[in-house]
Amino acid sequence: MANDKSASKSITNLIEQFSKLPGIGPKSAQRLTYYMVKTPKEQALSLSNAISELKEKILSCSECFNITEESPCYICSSQSRDTSTICVVEQPIDLIHIERTGVYNGLYHVLNGVISPMHGIGPESLKITELFQRIFSLQVIEVILATNPSLEGEATSMYINNFLSEKKIKTSVLARGLSIGSDLEYTDDLTLVRALEGRKFLN
C-alpha cells in the first residue's frame, strides 16, 4: 500500500504518482510500481523522458486550441485546407478521430469541454468566444457542430447555433441515429426518433 512503512520512500512516492492517473486505483498503482522496479533502467528512463518531453513540447494551438508541438498547428497553417468550413469538437481526441476518416478537409475548433449546467460549466468556461471571432475573421460559410450526441453536447451545439443563426451563418450537425453493430431492441426512444427522422432513401 502507498503508506506501507516497509516500502522505501521512492517506491511509495511512485505509487502515489501513479494513483493520481485516471482509472488507476491504489492496487494498480502498486502493481505498476513494482513492475517498474523490475524493468531495465533504459526502459524506465525512456518512459520518464517521454513524459517530460510531452510536457515541454506540447502546447495548445493559438487558432483552434488543438494540442500541437507548433502553434498554429499543421491544420491551421496548411494551405490546402478549406477555410470556409469549421468543424467544432469537444476534445482534441475527437479531432483525431474525424481526421482519421480522411473525408473532411476543413478547419477545426476545439472547445475544450461542453456546457454542463449540472456541473457548473457554462459557455464562458469554453472556447466559444474564440470560435465566434474565428468564424467572422475567416468568413466561414459552414460550421459543423460535431459535439457528442449527449445532452451536454447537444446543449452546447444549440447554444452555438442560436448565436450563429442570428448572424445568418450556416450550421450543421453530424447525423444522429443507430451506430453500426448496435441492437434496435435495446435502443432508446430518442435515438430511434432521430434515426427515423434522418433516414435515407435507397433508390
Binding site: E154, N162, V173
Partner: peptide, 9 residues
C-alpha cells in the same frame, strides 16, 4: 432578446 431558442438538431 432572441427570436427563438429552438434547435435545428
Amino acid at each position: 432578446n432572441s427570436i427563438s431558442s429552438k434547435s435545428l438538431l
